[in-house]
Amino acid sequence: MMLSSVIRNLFSKPATRPFPVAVRTAPDGYRGAVEFEEDVCIYCGACATRCPANAICVDRVAKSLDFDPFKCVQCGACAEACKKGCVQLQIDYQHPVAAHSTVTFNGALKPPEAP
């Protein structure tokens, strides 16, 4: 009964992709890594209030935002809550890092430029 499948599988390509050679891109609207645009952010804290994983901590007085990518569950509640549209979910997944740390956004710190 499985014979037709076996013969078909012998002459067809594998269902999987050879990963480093063929990289799959996620479709539009995929909920990947969260990114903040600190130039637009007014540090209102709406995203921190809605976050179910407590991954965002906003200091409204000091105008700074701490984001813990390890707590983030990529639900997109922050992006929905943001009135300014400065929180976006990238199509790309969260990249691995060497050590557990939070990322602080306060307008002063710019991401280091690539060497």
């Binding site: 269902a15 996620a26 479709p27 609207g29 995929y30 909920r31 569950v73 990529q74 639900c75 997109g76 979910l89």
Partner: peptide, 18 residues
């Protein structure tokens, strides 16, 4: 896998579709 791809396309995630 075809169904997981439908979730990814329509809801933005494969397993926890939120």
């Amino acid at each position: 896998e075809m169904l997981m791809d439908i979730f990814e396309k329509t809801a933005g995630s494969r397993v926890i579709i939120s």
